[in-house]
Structures are given as C-alpha cells and as structure tokens.
Amino acid sequence: MSTPTLRRPASPAASRIVPALKGLVGFAAALAVWQALAGIGFVRPEYFPSATTVLGDAISLLGQPGFTLQVLATLSEMLLGLLIATVVAVPLGILLGRFPVAYRMSSLLVEAMRPIPALALTPVAILLFGLSGATTISLVVWTSLWPVLINSVYGMHSVDRVALDTARSFGLSRWSALYRVALPSAAPFIATGVRIAIGIALAVAVATEMITGSGSGVGAWIVQASSGGSLVPVYAAAVLVGLLGYLLNFLFERIERRLFRWHLSYRKEAS
C-alpha cells in the first residue's frame, strides 16, 4: 500500500504553466547575472557585451536576410542529413536488432566506426563533395547515423517477447508481427535516438561550415562576423542558434510525447 498523497488537483493548464514560469525565472536570473557582470566592465564591451546589447543585436539579426537565410540553409542541410540518416539507420537497426547473428557480426565494425568524430571526416567529405552543402549534409548523416542505429537496435531488443508470441499465435505472419508489434514498441527508442542526433547534428553542421568556410550556412556567417573587431554578432548568433536548437528539441519532444503516450516504461535514456 502506498501512502495516499492527496494534492490540490492542478488544472492541466496550470501544470504546464507553472514549470514554464519557473524556467523563465531561471532565464531571467541568468540574464541579470550576465548584465551585472558586463556592467562591472572588467572586460572590453566588444568582447563581453551586456545581455541587453546582445539581445538587441539578436533581434535586429532576425530582420536581416543575410543572417536568416544562412540559418535556414544550415537548418535545411541539417534536417536533410538527419532524414537520410534515419532512413538508413532505422531499417539497419531493425535488421540488427531482429537477427542476433547480424548484430554480432557487425558489432566490431560499428564499434570501430562510431567513435570517429564526424569532423575528422571533413577533409574526406571536402575531397568527395567539394565546398558545398553536400559536405555538410554528409557529415550530419555520419554523426546522426550512430545514435539512431544504436537506439533502433536497443528498441528492437526491448520488444516484449510475449507480445510478439501473442501476435504470432493470433496468426500474424512474421512480417506483419514485425510491422504491427515490434516496430511500434521499438518506435519510442528510435525517436530517442533521433532526438539525441538532433542535438549533435546542429553542432556538426555549424562546425563543418566553420571549417570549410564555404560562405554558406550560419557557421560561415559566424567566421565572417568574428573577423570584425566586435564579438557582439557572435554572441547574438549563439543566442539565436541556441534558441533554434532548443525549439527543435522542444518540438520533437512534444511530438514524441503525443505519439508515444502509451509508452510506460521508464527509459534510461540520456537527456
């Protein structure tokens, strides 16, 4: 018997608004500290501008197509890379998760390739694709492939054998059992893999653009901007790109929660 803890029944709206407000308090406090530190003036304001300066610059950046178009370019490259990685990794993960032999035979190959940081392959990608968006996309694919693959395998491994046997006993064929039982129960894990990939894919996309300096994407924009005397645009871009990453993650989490509300298991996933 568990202790009955009766709480004031919170309305669904309140249960969403209160945490959001608390989060905003955290942001406000951080901005205040930033503003105060910058106000002391122990660092030149070009290098450590105040929060208000940066936020003002960020807002004006939003109105500059020279910036927003680069952000869109990065975003589309990143999303395309993510999509390709998912399309490749999910079937592969299902295959490896379903057939232990395939899993065992490929495990060392995966373990050897997975730790290669995407950025180390930048020169190879440049040789193959030149200084183009394809270079960025290919590296995003490389970096996203592994979390999606690993989590797909993991998801397949966690499929309830009883559920699978039940489905088979009801006369479902091997394929429809896979499609109707295994895949849905592995889906939340696959989604987790994609969400982990999103986080690192944006960093890799921006980094690639910074290294290639090809003139496209927000990474190239930042390299350009930082060559001037002031770091204010770099701070502003960081704030905005961070916001983009935050929103992407937030959106994806919402979709996940909507889709997998039935998924009860506590997932020891990494945030």
Binding site: F27, M210, L231, A238, G242, L243, Y246
Partner: peptide, 26 residues
C-alpha cells in the same frame, strides 16, 4: 531543478562551435 534545467537545456542546445570565436578571443 525546475528553475535551472530549462536554462541548462538551452545551454546544451547552443552548438559549442558557435562560441569558439569567443573562447579564442578570451
């Protein structure tokens, strides 16, 4: 945690390479 984790999620969302120029200046 309720006050600070959203801020930290934001910190994580900022792609580190973006702030590399700032680190180089400092």
């Amino acid at each position: 945690g309720a006050y600070l984790t959203p801020l930290m999620h934001y910190g994580r969302a900022v792609p580190a390479p973006v702030v590399l120029p700032i680190f180089m200046i400092f």
